[in-house]
Simulated scan of single mutants.
Amino acid sequence: MKLSRYFQVTKPGITGGNLIATFGGFLLASQGHALDWGLMLATAIGLSLVVASGCAINNCIDRDIDSRMARTQKRVLVTGAMSVRAAFAHGLVLGLAGFATLAIWTNALATACAAFGYFIYVGVYSLWMKRRSVYGTVVGSLSGAVPPVAGYCAASGRFDTGALILLLMFCLWQMPHSYAIAIFRFKDYEAAQIPVLPVVRGISEAKRQIVLYILAFAAATVLLVVGGYAGYGYLAVAVATSLWWLKMALAGYQPAVDDRRWARQVFLFSTVTISALSVMMAIDGQVPAHVGWVL
């Protein structure tokens, strides 16, 4: 059906994943206040439209790359089921609707966060860094970390220490998550000549960095508790998931390990980890005694 093409080009899996993180950030910042359901709905809708727009535009930019990767060869712009013009117009309309929703019904700070993430993802990552630098993943992690931060800013009306911790957490999470994808999809990235870390510097280096980033992520998750933004229930889940994720990452050094299978497991558990933490932020968030640094 024609409508399904418009849905597929927005990468609904990515949009849905970002929505969970958005709710986590919003509900974390709502602790100690009556929940504003209208504001939360506007934030969720606005950010989802913005993310969907970025994904649609990304599909337009990456159609040549997608044609050389096995997992993306059936995307609608590659098969010709949808024209580039239609996909671009669809993305443009979604973006305008999303930013209008955020600007009218949330606040300027949340809208600015969304605009920053959009610019990084579409303008810096998709158009430039992804094709030219091994550091594209690092740059892309900034855009991936925006939804929970924008949700937090929409609810609180400020960018404070809590928002900064969320930005750090989600940026650090993106790295092992993305490197794991690049390992189990190694042949695709190699065929498309995308300079991701495993292709440029080897799988061994990617494994080392996965372990280091998980350690850094684990430390960052604890900062929400140290700063008084989350309680011990959140801490228990954060420690348990981070340690298990680290254990899985270290298993990559076992003799005769199947790198592709191992990386897929690390990737899948990364989604479990961040989803669990997003839920626990919402359930076990607290009002800090001091909000710390505020913008």
Rank of each mutant, 00 (worst) to 15 (best):
A145F: 02
G38T: 08
F99W: 09
P176A: 00
V50Q: 01
Q174N: 10
A81C: 05
C153Q: 11
M248A: 14
T101G: 00
F88V: 13
L224Y: 01
L28Q: 11
L47P: 12
G32Q: 05
T161F: 08
W262C: 05
P255E: 01
A44H: 09
R264T: 02
M82N: 04
L168W: 03
K130Y: 09
Y253V: 12
Y189N: 04
L109W: 05
I181V: 12
S126F: 07
G91V: 12
E190A: 09
T106H: 08
G157W: 10
Q8C: 06
V149S: 00
K247M: 07
L96V: 15
G38R: 01
L39F: 03
S143K: 09
A238M: 01
Y232T: 07
V139Q: 05
Y125C: 03
K2T: 12
A145E: 03
R75K: 03
S275E: 03
R75M: 03
S133H: 14
G140Q: 06
V146K: 13
S178V: 11
G228C: 02
F116K: 10
S242C: 02
A44E: 08
G231A: 04
S4V: 09
I203V: 15
V50M: 02
R131K: 13
L164R: 12
D284V: 04
T221K: 03
Y152F: 15
V78A: 05
L166A: 12
G144F: 06
Y6H: 11
A238N: 07
V257D: 11
S126E: 02
P12Y: 06
A103Y: 10
A87K: 04
L49C: 09
S4I: 09
L27E: 07
W37R: 03
T137Y: 06
R261G: 15
L39C: 00
Y121R: 06
A89F: 14
A100R: 13
D160R: 15
S67H: 04
V272F: 12
S141H: 07
Y189D: 03
Y6S: 09
A86W: 08
I57D: 01
S270V: 04
W173D: 11
G16V: 03
F170K: 08
L277N: 14
D258M: 12
G32V: 02
V226I: 14
Q254A: 13
